[in-house]
Design a binder for these strands. Sequence first.
DNA 1: TTAAATAGTTAAACAATTGAACTATTTCGA
DNA 2: TCGAAATAGTTCAATTGTTTAACTATTTAA
Lengths: 148, 148
Amino acid sequence: MEGSIQQFIERYLSVSFLVNKRGAALMKCELDDVTHDQYYVLRYIHKRGMCTSTELADVFAVNKSAITAMTNRLVEKGMIERGKDGDDRRVISLTLTEKGKMWLIETEQKVYELVQTMMTKLSYEEIELFIQTYEKLAKILQEMEEKK
Amino acid sequence: MEGSIQQFIERYLSVSFLVNKRGAALMKCELDDVTHDQYYVLRYIHKRGMCTSTELADVFAVNKSAITAMTNRLVEKGMIERGKDGDDRRVISLTLTEKGKMWLIETEQKVYELVQTMMTKLSYEEIELFIQTYEKLAKILQEMEEKK
DNA sequence: TTAAATAGTTAAACAATTGAACTATTTCGA
DNA sequence: TCGAAATAGTTCAATTGTTTAACTATTTAA
């Protein structure tokens, strides 16, 4: 039993790193001059409608200054814009520009096709179970992080 | 049915990115002055006993010059060493130094504990199925890459 | 035997990241 | 209510990972 857990850990470490590296490499082909990380930031902002630097830094588990740098690049590319709103004048809201929305919708299409070709090699049930467990892991990781 | 696949893709994209970012952030705490990527390179070399730049570049899906840069840093840190061996004098073999081995063994311990705390929140069967599917995905990705 | 292929390096450029110091604004407790 | 502490975001310098193109050295093969 103990030995098996060890093996699980070993297998998990190997496979998770590989799938991510290779997945990112494949996705990059569909992303024009936007990077992999930038794509996820655009996705997140779009899903939320708008958000703040602090929220992005929390969600992606990086420093706020990393977010400033990334959003600078996205603003330069015309994908997002900064705006002041709300009563708190310290807060800066980030939203997609029209160009950003257009780009995202187009790109989501391509990325979806990519993920779909990958997924359709598995059964419906297998995907369902896999994602469910993955989501549990996300929750567990978040709790572990909060404990620190 | 179509709608569900769309949702799977959406959920997969969100959760895979998050688990990786957060997982990497947690792991980083255990890695002293070695980075997350460097850790995986050390792991890989250790598992294989020795390997070459070209092999690393293939496995991690990056350019060979990226590997040169990384191995330079690992050599500077005294973790690995370059050696000539074999008949082909173009090939440079990469192996862990004693210090590198020591460090890896110590660190694997800590990382294993981390992954273990994560995994023990799931049932044995769930982990088994999850990793099996993950490994299938790795294989599928590799095939997709080769097709290009 | 020479042309093509392969293994690896170098250099310039860019993206992501951290940490510390900073500005501007808000919150809160005495 | 006032002043100190907290919060939101930026700036700057440094490190790391990455790509691309040009390069050296060696091997393979026509």
